[in-house]
Simulated scan of single mutants.
Amino acid sequence: MPDSDLLLIGLGNPGAKYDFNRHNVGFLIIDELARRWGFSLSAGKWQSQSCRERKWGSRVLMVKPQTFMNRSGQAVAEFAKFYKIPLQHIIVIHDDLDMHPGRLKLVQGGGAGGHNGIRSITQSLGGNDFFRLKIGIGRPGRGEVHPEIPVESYVLSNMGAEEQEILESRFDPIEEGLRTFIESGVAKAMSLINSIK
């Protein structure tokens, strides 16, 4: 997709108390990519932090909606409409309860799976043909994941040290996967990202 726009959305909740919540991995990844690329997100349009810069021959529009998770779609739809970005050029980065911590998966379409941010985006865009970069956080009660914690409390709790280390180890393959998406297409990007178990 050379010389076209990629709308890269990170999902999370605004405010310092949410910074390292499992539900905020989308924000954390956007922040790390912006740091690596020398981009500076600023508050502005449509209750979001955003920036629009060139990377790998394309224009990358990075957005962190500040509307709280359940209304993320409002901001996403405004950016997509204003910049005339088709759903196939949108990637939403978000947490996924049904994958173990650190698992990566790039998919197109599909249901919300109980994720209110994805549900809001699908409703606001009028379709689900956008891409989703899902980051596994594990579901409480499965495997070794905190069986005593209700789901709502689990996603809004901070990651432990081991979880943060796992997430940090995924920054390189996520960056490489996005570069591949832009330069070489969806199939190669999926092959690369979805191999990270």
Results as ranks from 00 to 15, higher is better:
Asn128Gln: 15
Gly160Leu: 01
Arg103Asn: 12
Ala161Tyr: 04
Gly113Asn: 01
Ala112Leu: 06
Val107Leu: 06
Arg119Asn: 14
Gln108Glu: 09
Gly114Thr: 06
Gly117Gln: 07
Val155Gly: 07
Pro150His: 06
Lys105Asp: 08
Glu152Ile: 02
Gly143Glu: 10
Gly136Pro: 11
Pro140Gly: 06
Gly141Thr: 12
Pro140Arg: 06
Gly141Glu: 11
His146Glu: 00
Arg132Tyr: 12
Gly127Asp: 14
Leu97Cys: 01
Gln123Pro: 00
Leu133Thr: 13
Phe130Glu: 04
Leu125Gly: 13
Arg103Ser: 13
Val145Asp: 06
Glu152Trp: 01
Gln123Ala: 14
Ser157Phe: 08
Tyr154Pro: 00
Pro147Cys: 02
Ile121Gly: 05
Lys105Arg: 15
Gln123Asn: 12
Leu125Thr: 14
Ala112Pro: 05
Ser124Pro: 00
His100Val: 09
Ile135Asn: 02
Asn116Leu: 08
Gly111Met: 02
Gly138Asn: 03
Ser153Glu: 06
Arg132Ile: 12
Asn116Asp: 03
Asn128Ala: 15
Leu156Pro: 04
Leu125Trp: 14
Ile118Trp: 07
Lys134Val: 13
Gly111Val: 02
Gln123Phe: 02
Arg142Glu: 15
Asp129Ile: 04
Ile137Arg: 12
Pro101Ala: 07
Gly110Glu: 03
Ile121Thr: 10
Ile121Tyr: 04
Pro101Arg: 08
Pro147Asn: 02
Arg139Met: 11
Gly110Cys: 06
